[in-house]
Design a binder for these strands. Structure first.
Lengths: 146, 146
DNA sequence: AGCAATTAAATTGTGCACAACCCTTTGGGT
DNA sequence: ACCCAAAGGGTTGTGCACAATTTAATTGCT
């Protein structure tokens, strides 16, 4: 212990730190599974959003995933190159880019069920803890975003 | 709803997603505060580790922060350029690089107390929820890292 | 119709993360 | 002394995140 201030908060008492570190640890755990599918973690989440809600515009995807065009545009281009999605401008409004799954992108849904299942199994949390945690995270998310 | 598989997990039921999104939301909330201090979030965490435990090697910092040299080395160089830390090789073992705070780096501790305080205040969590969440995150972190 | 304001993506630049690889130093074993 | 494996950082390349700016299309107003 080097610090002397009374109100100093240690690294381990930083809630932000345990969230930040755990988030990255989950992505590390997923990596070998996602590598088999030739996906990155944000790409996987994008596919989940498309499987769930069908074709969407870039900004709709951005709202769901909480990502902006600066992140999405290059990532979606990589996903298009990998033949997972197609992007084309809306004929009615040329500003809008619509994103939709290719057949390959649709087929990947079946193989990807292991991803959330693996976290569930490895988490070491019982059903109560799991749901409480998910609820608390969402509550925290809302408050922090205000 | 476009998907048809029985065991499909929606985006909002992905625990990884609420953790990932909340972690980034916290960092966004911190940004204006950290901008005032001319710090990024990982740089702030690095300072906390140094305030707490004094001079450390790159690998010791890496263990505490859960980061490897590929991330740390360039970041520590930027922090050295900003005059927050100094780095020099250990005379006894030339492989080791020791990182220690400059006077400027030490002085920043006083101004940084608002960072964790801001999350505590904005979180909307009571003391029970806060501690349960922190404990559950650490438990999850351990299980996921196995 | 003409034009300013708004909207939707794309672009640019910086800073992490992290895998894969490299380079130097050190510690053992012979 | 010599060699070899391990340890500690550094480097390179890819892919997010995100702020800030840009470009093009559309809407609203007069």
């Amino acid at each position: 212990m080097t610090q002397r201030s009374q109100n100093f908060v240690s690294l381990n008492d930083h809630l932000c730190f345990s969230i930040y570190t755990t988030s990255r640890a989950i992505q590390r755990m997923y990596r070998p599974l996602l590598d088999d599918l030739n996906l990155t973690y944000p790409q996987y989440l994008t596919l989940v959003a498309l499987w769930e809600n069908g074709p969407q515009t870039v900004s709709q995807l951005g709202n769901k995933l909480d990502l902006d065009s600066g992140t999405l545009t290059p990532m979606l281009k990589r996903m298009e190159k990998a033949n997972l999605i197609v992007r084309h401008r809306d004929v009615m409004d040329e500003r809008v880019v619509l994103v939709e799954l290719t057949e390959k992108g649709k087929r990947m849904q079946a193989d990807s069920a292991i991803i959330p299942q693996t976290l569930l199994e490895k988490s070491g949390l019982d059903s109560d803890e799991w749901h409480t945690l998910n609820k608390t995270m969402k509550k925290l998310m809302v408050h922090v975003s205000e």
